[in-house]
Design a protein around this nucleic acid. Structure first.
Length: 264
DNA sequence: CGTATCCTGACC
DNA sequence: GGTCAGGATACG
């Protein structure tokens, strides 16, 4: 699920559920989660009040009243579920927050690649991140500087969270379709017009998803073929020019693009 | 730079 | 049984 728009809605859900509530218990239900958050550490969260849940890129920061921070990253398949105790935990419940109003905030993650880690006051748990993909700091000027020494294809560069925070594999392909740019273009050889097109392409791709959470996220969402212009549409017709959508692999990840209207 | 790795499920 | 999956990092 999770690129910036999906994490934004998830963080909002976590905030609505947990902000201002006291944690009665924090349980980890999978060995890989327990490695990152050992039982003794999880136990130390008991009694903490959740002050707020913030999002930065695809990261979530659960701020605790003590000044400590729980850093959450969904990776490939993580998501929050909110349950009332009579309801059974989801099949892939990995971390469970029991809250003092009786609700449960559950990290649901079939692949168990999500991470939840606890950090002491004053520690910034975030890795180096570029500007928010949806913010004004993410500009063609910034991109020109960030890409100046990068000889990787532009699609690969967009996945680097130090270049721009929040873009993942789906929206990188989508953004380049909006920008009408060939994903194989070398990042540091793009001109000012092309960089501006990339910035606006990223904004359009993410903005579209941010505006339609009910259609783009979670159970009952519409099929990928409807949500996306190129992602997972290999062989189908481009909505813009009618040519067949192609797929290639870059840095081990699938890229989808239209050779008819995305040019170098 | 590309590749392996952490996991599990879906699909061919 | 093999391949692939919306992420990120460690490594050669």
């Amino acid at each position: 699920m999770p690129e910036l728009p999906e994490v934004e809605y998830a963080a909002r859900l976590a905030r609505e559920t947990a902000a201002g509530k006291r944690v009665v218990a924090l349980r980890t239900l999978h060995p890989s989660q327990r490695r990152a958050l050992p039982d003794a550490v999880a136990a130390s969260v008991t009694g903490e009040v959740v002050r707020d849940v913030l999002r930065r890129g695809k990261h979530q920061l659960m701020q605790l009243a003590s000044g400590r921070t729980l850093h959450v990253h969904f990776r490939m398949t993580g998501d929050w579920r909110v349950l009332a105790p009579p309801d059974a935990l989801p099949a892939y419940a990995r971390v469970v927050f029991e809250l003092d109003d009786g609700m449960r905030l559950v990290l649901d993650d079939s692949r168990a690649l999500s991470s939840v880690t606890l950090h002491e006051p004053g520690i910034d748990p975030l890795p180096a991140l570029g500007p928010e993909a949806t913010g004004s700091e993410f500009s063609s000027d910034w991109l020109a500087r960030a890409l100046a020494t990068r000889r990787t294809p532009i699609k690969v560069a967009l996945l680097d969270q130090r270049v721009v925070a929040g873009v993942g594999n789906i929206y990188a392909s989508e953004a380049l379709w909006y920008a009408r740019l060939d994903p194989r273009c070398v990042a540091n050889r793009l001109g000012a017009m092309q960089l501006a097109a990339v910035v606006s392409g990223v904004r359009r791709a993410l903005g579209k998803a941010l505006r339609h959470p009910e259609r783009y996220y979670g159970a009952g969402s519409v099929s990928d073929a409807v949500r996306f212009n190129v992602y997972d549409r290999e062989g189908r017709r481009c909505r813009r020019c009618g040519a067949a959508i192609a797929r290639l692999v870059q840095a081990g990840r699938s890229t989808y693009w239209c050779g008819g209207c995305q040019k170098a």
